[in-house]
Simulated scan of single mutants.
Amino acid sequence: MTARTTTGNESWDAFWAEVSGARTETIRGIEVQVPRDIPFGFEERVGELSTSSAREDIAELITALFGPDVFDAWADAGMGYYELLTVLTWGMAQASGTDMSFAEAYQAVKELDSEGKAQSPPNRAARRAQSKPTGGPSKPTSRASTASTRKRSAG
């Protein structure tokens, strides 16, 4: 069976925009495309970065969902950390096919924060403490592999 198209010679981009209902949203004065699909490897990357509040890690996730330069434009527009988490939550829901409102995304961020699962940005002392070694001794992997053998005297 042959697939039927409306124009006959449409491009993939035009077809996908029609099928996925491409739309835009203005967030902090920046018009962005509403995410329509989760990029490959995105969910794993979110898991890997879930405890990070480093600017470049958040920028990586925002870029994957909303495109290049969006993170910097939002930062320049004065967007704060919890706003970014809210927009990221909203964008992830949209990309996975859930039509979540901004209010619902904000509520989800607040709930995660109250459960201690949303990480607030660490202050200077906390960042320094994270980079310091604990100073504790390491444990041997196996006594058999690290023990020395006794040599018998020839006497």
Rank of each mutant, 00 (worst) to 15 (best):
M1H: 07
M1T: 14
M1E: 11
T2W: 01
T5S: 04
T6H: 10
G8I: 10
E10H: 04
E10G: 05
S11L: 13
S11A: 13
W12G: 04
A14Q: 15
F15N: 07
W16A: 14
E18A: 15
G21M: 09
G21K: 02
A22K: 11
A22Q: 01
R23D: 11
R23W: 02
R23N: 01
T24F: 10
T24H: 05
R28V: 06
G29Q: 09
E31K: 14
E31W: 03
V34D: 04
P35G: 08
R36W: 08
R36N: 03
D37E: 12
D37V: 13
I38G: 03
I38E: 03
I38F: 09
G41D: 01
E43G: 00
E44C: 05
R45I: 05
V46W: 02
G47F: 03
E48N: 08
E48C: 01
L49I: 02
T51S: 12
S52P: 14
S52F: 12
R55G: 04
E56Y: 09
D57H: 09
I58S: 06
A59E: 15
E60D: 11
I62H: 05
F66V: 00
F66H: 13
F66C: 04
G67L: 09
G67K: 00
G67Q: 02
G67W: 11
P68A: 13
P68K: 15
V70D: 08
F71M: 06
F71W: 12
W74Q: 09
A75S: 13
A75Y: 11
D76N: 11
A77S: 10
M79K: 06
Y82F: 04
Y82P: 00
E83H: 03
E83W: 10
L84H: 07
L85R: 13
T86N: 07
T89H: 04
W90F: 13
W90P: 01
G91N: 06
M92P: 00
A93G: 08
A95C: 05
G97H: 06
G97M: 05
D99C: 02
D99V: 12
M100F: 06
S101K: 02
S101A: 12
F102E: 14
Y106F: 00
Q107A: 15
A108M: 05
A108D: 11
L112H: 06
D113A: 15
S114E: 15
S114F: 07
E115T: 00
K117W: 03
K117F: 12
K117Y: 11
A118T: 09
S120D: 13
P122R: 14
N123S: 10
A125H: 02
A126Q: 12
R127A: 05
R128P: 00
A129I: 00
Q130P: 00
Q130I: 04
P133D: 14
G135S: 04
S138I: 09
S142W: 06
A144C: 00
T146R: 15
A147H: 06
R150Q: 13
S153H: 10
S153F: 07
A154M: 09
A154K: 13
G155Y: 00
